[in-house]
Each structure stands twice: as structure tokens, then as C-alpha cells.
Design a protein around this nucleic acid. Sequence first.
RNA 1: GGAGAGAUGGCUGAGUGGUCGAAAGCGCUCCCCUGCUAAGGGAGUAAGGGUUAAAAGCCCUUCGAGGGUUCGAAUCCCUCUCUCUCCGCCA
Length: 426
Amino acid sequence: MIDPKLLRQSAADVATNLARRGYVFDADAYLALDEQRKSLQVETQRLQSERNSSAKSIGMAKAKGDDIAPLLAAVEDLGTQLATSESALQDVQAKLTDIELDLPNLLDDSVPDGKDENDNVEVRTWGNATSFSFDVRDHIDLGEGLGMLDFDAASGISGSRFLVMTGALARLQRALIQFMLDVHTEEHGYKETYVPYLVHAHALVGTGQLPKFEEDLFKTDGDTPFYLIPTAEVPVTNLVRDTMLEADQLPQRYTAHTPCFRSEAGSYGRDTRGMVRQHQFEKVELVHFVAADESMAALETLTGHAEVILQKLELPYRVVALCAGDVGFGAAKTYDLEVWLPGQNKYREISSCSNYNDFQARRMRARRRNPDTGKPELIHTLNGSGVAAGRALIAVMENYQNEDGSIRVPAVLKPYMAGAEVIARA
RNA sequence: GGAGAGAUGGCUGAGUGGUCGAAAGCGCUCCCCUGCUAAGGGAGUAAGGGUUAAAAGCCCUUCGAGGGUUCGAAUCCCUCUCUCUCCGCCA
């Protein structure tokens, strides 16, 4: 959520910033609504004040034993007036809140202009596109050739966008997850966490998936439904909801491995083949909680931590700065890591690292006490994939393939694969 | 699933219809005292919002959330969420 005070004072500037995303913020309509709110609030508060003082004098009169009947008569109409005024105020405030929850975050000035992913800016590359002396296969051919990847079985159980893996391939994904968690906890100072995969709506409002993106989520039945998490970002970031942190408790870094569940509504026809886009996938997530003035530096650090994973796996990748039109709803700035996939002959997103600044913190009421002023202030939150395990598995399969369809095990994963060098058809 | 008890400020915890935004303690800030340290004494210390150019001041809201009763609700009633205890079941 954008600071409502900023919206009121600089609505035009906010509209200009959001226009870079292609988002139309009707500043005049908002300000007109806010004017309504203001006059209703002044009137409501005047009536409330009147009620409070009369209630107080009735209380004192009663304590003295005086007759309170005339006092009661004097405030006869006040109740209904107040009720009318209060409910009108509530209506307007609800409308304002709806607008505010719908507004994406302000973009950082360093975000490049652009409409969609074609306008993203390459920041750096690492490694060279893997070269082969034979015709490369994609991960589907490789996995099915090994007899370890079965989309037919999965669709029989759950339909499209699910997969079944068996044997060494299933283990390879587990190895990737273990490896990533170990690097982040042992080398990058993250605290490993285990979190719920089913969450209440308010947690998703806190991180920004609700109320706007309900159709992207899976939801259980019942009066108080659960939502399946679309990313570990949701439960992990909500660790600081409604907290007041002391200065020495920041920064904090958390990592978690969770499955992620996404309905992929609206992505019909995209990546229908293979395991690139699934309803259920595994991911290792990184989350930072930092003081306000540290978040931009933290974004660089966080991105670097995700990059280390790809470097250790010796997978070629590039870092792109997302352009204004491609930055996600709650983020102020985002770097994507794109890994080289020989099977598609292009780079594909494997990690997305974002600085949310105070956008999520405001929704969650996550604050720290400023040691200089003694006053509470919103913290900043960041998160990034470190990295998506399903897509990392694809990248390993395709980049480490042999001519006979077997797959070499990356050096750093061998300890997690009982020392196996190669995955071959059994 | 059944029965019960709870949710109060940064934290612990009093408060069961009126002058209660809320005792006390802890923590924190400032000051004093003590030749170090430990300890002691005093004062201050919730958040969000409105009014304002800004501040001061004044006002409003907030005692888990939402409704209700009342002139008046932390306190009474209803619903929900969460926590704890006991029973049952269970990986």
C-alpha cells in the first residue's frame, strides 16, 4: 500500500509514477473522494465530541444525585445524527481503502522505462550459452527418455500442469533443494524456516496477493477458507506482521523451501508442454527484513545470493532489471535471474528478486523503533527466489545432457546424490 | 469432534457500566546521587487520524476483529479469528 498521506498530498506525482507501469490512477477522483471523507470526518468528530461531553456531564450529574432527565432529553437526536454521519464516513473510507489496496507500489527511479518483458534491461551475464556437438533435447525428451518423468500419469491423477517424477530425477530435485538451503544458511547467514502452506486471507492481503489477485490462488471450501500459498514469501514475510522490532533486531534474513501452488488462470496456451509452468512446484525462497534506508543495498545482496546458486551449479544466466511495465504489483524494483535453457535456446526466468520497500510492511503493520527518534517506523521487506527448484532441475537436465540422453550430476550436487556421476536409464 | 478459560500499551499484568488511554512492574529516554562497578533517587515514555504552511494546542478513534445494548462500554450481549487447558481421535 502506498502511504495515504502521500496520496493526498501528491496525488498527481503518484499518478505520474504509476503511469510508467501503465496503471491509470485517477488522482482527481481520489482527491474528490478524500474531500468528502474530510468533511464527513470533521462533522462526525464534532458529533462524537458532543456525545462524549454530554455523557460525561450526565455521569457527573448522576453521581451528585441530580435529575438527569433534562440532560437525556437534550441529547435525544444526537444518536441518530451520529449514526448517519458515522455510516456515511465509513462508506467513503471503505471506498478509499478499496482504491488504496488496488494501487500498485511506486516504482523506484532506477527502474527502466518500458511496456513489457521485451523492454527489460540486461544488467550482466554469467557464463556462455552451453555448446553441444550433437542435437540437444529438451527436458521433456530427456526425462521421458530416462523413464523418470511422466506427464500422462500426472494428468490421470490431477489433470494438466502436474507432473510425476521417479527415481534419480526425483532425487535430483531434492538434492537441489538441500543444496540451496545449505548454501543460504551456511554461507549467506539465512535462518531456515518451516512454515504453513495453507494461510488465511489476511496473510495474503499483507503481502499483496489479495484482494486483487484472488483468481491466481487455490482456495479451500468453508466459512473461513484457507488459501494454498503461491510462494513462501507469503508465510515467511508475515512473520513480522504486527510486530515492533528494536533497532538491533534488524536486518533479518530467512529462507524456506516450500511447494508453491498457482492456478495459472489467464496463462492458457503458455508453456503447456513440460514442467516450466505447473500448478505445483518447489521453490527455495529468500526474505529480508531491513531498516528503510538499507533496502536498496539489500536488493543487490539478495540478488547476489540467488546468483551464487547458479554459479555453483555452473549454469549460464543473465540478470535483467525489469522495466516499469513488467515490475510486479507490490515491488518497487525487481531483478530477474534468467537461466540458459538449451532445449528452448533462450534464457528463462528462474528467480525474481524484489524490493517492496514499505508496501508490504504498511499492510502488515511491521515496524521498528527508530533508535534516533524513538518513534515507530515501517520496515522494508524484500524477497527473491533462491531459486525455483523445478526450473533449476530443467536447467540442470538440459545443460548437463549427454548425447545418449543421460545427465551428468553437477559437482556440487554429488554429495546429495550418494556420489552418483550420471543419471542414466535404469 | 466435545467441555472450559482467555486475547489490554515495546513486554508482563491490574481493571466487570461514568472524571479510564487505562494501576503497577519491566524496558527505554533524560536528570540527580554514588571516587570504578553494582545499586539508589526523580521526571518522562502507546499508536493512528483530524484541524495547521508547520508546530504547539485542541479534538476524534483504538483494550483481538466485526456487529449490538446504553446518554455513556476495556467492562454487558451476539458472531468471527486466534491462544491455552481437559476429554476423544490421530501421523
